[in-house]
Design a protein around this nucleic acid. Structure first.
Lengths: 371, 371
DNA sequence: TTGTAGGCGTTATCAA
DNA sequence: TTGATAACGCCTACAA
């Protein structure tokens, strides 16, 4: 607990009492919900054995009927189905995971939930997998090796059915660990030659190259780069530098940030750029949140974008298009990445495929008013 | 899969090959990571029995040493601790859940992940609970009774340690179900008299009242309301209407929306309001995303905010302060709600308290330039 | 403070 | 196509 001043309860004394909300209560139209029965169902939910007895088969047959209907005769299948329906039987996931050594949970690790692309990817992936009977469990790695390692190690105990990362695992130990885990893994958001298993990648190098190309095509020659010092930021910088140099443009400032927690970091960075004597005529922000913060700060400082300074982002958050001037950006389709990751995992889990696919999701330059 | 035109892979044919990313590989400095040992650790992780044998105690003593150290002598505790460290033993959560009938997963159901407040709340709640040894599993209810019911029913099989909702459960059946589940439940984001169990609430009624009061204090008399037709939107409208009427202001338009998926709904609504012949001089949007969309649209339409129309939001997303003009809003501290929910649940789970607390988190009017 | 016995509910394995 | 048997790893209940 922090000190009382910041805790909500600490403020109560001086405030009038809150009004109660008259929250709606909705009664289900269907049945009057027999209290006792409902409570009993929770206290002692039906087990596979109960279903088996009532259907006149053995427990293992019920198990098969539910998991591999193809192995059970249609008549038996139907009898089991009826009893399952009637009793409301749901398999106990813990018992199932214990015995089979595999749970129906798919672990998704996102870099953070603040950036729209990541949670869009997680949502889309979860949607696909839920349709296939799996649940998504979301964890955050926060761009930190320590958090990533902790997350990866928790998988040994969890025994997930599959794993999805909105990123590429950099620590060799973690890569090996995941390989040994023996479950399908999808990495994403970069395009390495040697993914752990499957990949739904974007080329950050190309993203950087596209950025340089675009800014130069707009007549800019003194470019600045702002992005994270590690991981994808570094890759984007690399492409940006290479292409700028090919095109004869100069990179006058490279500004690295540790973390991107909010757009307010963009404010600071823009002020620094403006104050610097190495004047840039265009900035590529390897992250939309930073670019948006910078765009807002530019207006406050009285800079005209793009005349005084062109600003280009990467990611395409919903707000990019809404800014004034609207933010040009290298768009990343997070939902498409997540959806495809979900499909690849589902294909493996349902044994429709055994391939270690590497796919590429193209980036798209969205030229708007800020560049 | 949708049609090829929108699928990323469908676009590949005409594009140049992507550049590979030269992703960094980081080798841990510590150990050279013995391949066989690591693989063996995953194939056959140490069990409580292995630890027990090596520490010269019984399995149950190891179990107690890990869960209730107070019941074990310091000497034994230390011996167990050393062996656990050495073997890298981690308890199997599935076996544990199966035997004890309770898992270490806490289920969090958020209304959606698009709104910043909700995922801030989930993050904060997760942070607190992870420190207490629990994992957060996030699900979305999407403001839908059907999704909520499905989510609630999945809990029977999951046997979570606790449940957190960014909202109040409205369906009686689900309320009863959760009560019978016998695990701590925190509802939030509203202030009902009779929560299922615990509550970290805000008064939506008061939020509406504050909104009306503020707009009237700014000299407005012809008010409009925009919000969801059900749930908290309704509550906010109720308070807004009541207070407006007390203060002699007229509510000239009430516009209900089904869902809030993005700020683009705000554009549409604003155009409707402007086109209507029931002219309002101020609008209260019961949701910041809508208000931001409206603010942007107002600028496009050439309206001067707040002179032509005052705009007030609710929620206080990060962008509210950044708009031009900056958005006035009734701020909800999502992180505080989540943190407190986590603390209450942790207190119950660690048996530091057995109370069914109802707490109130005050709303804060943040008057900026749009009103 | 520590230990013994047994079962949680499912599914792998082998057999029919 | 179906079934018998046993075991997954832990923790509850009870005993010492």
């Amino acid at each position: 607990m922090t000190d009382a001043a910041s805790a909500p309860t600490g403020q109560r004394e001086n405030l009038p009492l809150p009004s109660y909300d008259e929250v709606v209560r909705v009664r289900s139209a269907a049945k009057p919900a027999p209290d006792k029965a409902r409570a009993a169902l929770i206290a002692r939910p039906p087990r596979i054995e109960d279903v088996a007895r009532e259907a006149g088969v053995s427990p293992i047959t019920v198990s098969r009927a539910l998991r591999s209907p193809g192995l059970v005769s249609p008549a038996t299948l139907e009898r089991v189905r009826i009893v399952v329906e009637k009793t409301g039987y749901v398999s106990n996931p813990h018992a199932s995971a214990l015995r089979s050594g595999r749970s129906s949970v798919v672990a998704a690790f996102v870099s953070n939930l603040v950036s729209q692309q990541y949670h869009e990817a997680a949502d889309a992936c979860g949607e696909v997998l839920e349709a296939a009977g799996y649940q998504l469990m979301i964890g955050q790695t926060s761009y930190s090796y320590a958090r990533e390692t902790a997350a990866v190690h928790s998988l040994r105990a969890l025994k997930p059915a599959a794993v999805f990362f909105t990123g590429v695992v950099e620590l060799e130990d973690n890569r090996n660990f995941l390989r040994d885990l023996g479950v399908p893994v999808v990495e994403s958001w970069a395009f390495p030659r040697d993914p752990i298993d499957m990949l739904v990648g974007i080329s950050n190098t190309d993203g950087g190259r596209m950025a340089a190309e675009h800014l130069v095509s707009r007549g800019r020659r003194r470019l600045a780069f702002v992005g994270r010092s590690g991981g994808r930021g570094r890759l984007r910088l690399k492409g940006f530098e290479a292409r700028a140099s090919e095109l004869g443009a100069e990179i006058v400032v490279i500004r690295e940030v540790e973390h991107v927690r909010s757009m307010s970091e963009g404010h600071v960075v823009l002020r620094e750029l403006v104050a610097s004597d190495r004047k840039a005529d265009a900035v590529f922000f390897a992250n939309d949140l930073l670019a948006i913060g910078a765009l807002l700060e530019a207006r406050r400082l009285g800079l005209t974008v793009p005349d005084d300074l062109a600003i280009l982002g990467m990611g395409d958050s919903e707000f990019a298009a809404q800014m004034t001037p609207s933010l040009s950006t290298i768009a990343i389709d997070g939902a498409a990445i997540g959806r495809r990751a979900g499909e690849l995992l589902a294909d493996r889990l349902l044994e429709r495929s055994a391939q270690a696919v590497s796919e590429h999701v193209p980036l798209r330059l969205v030229a708007r008013d800020s560049s």
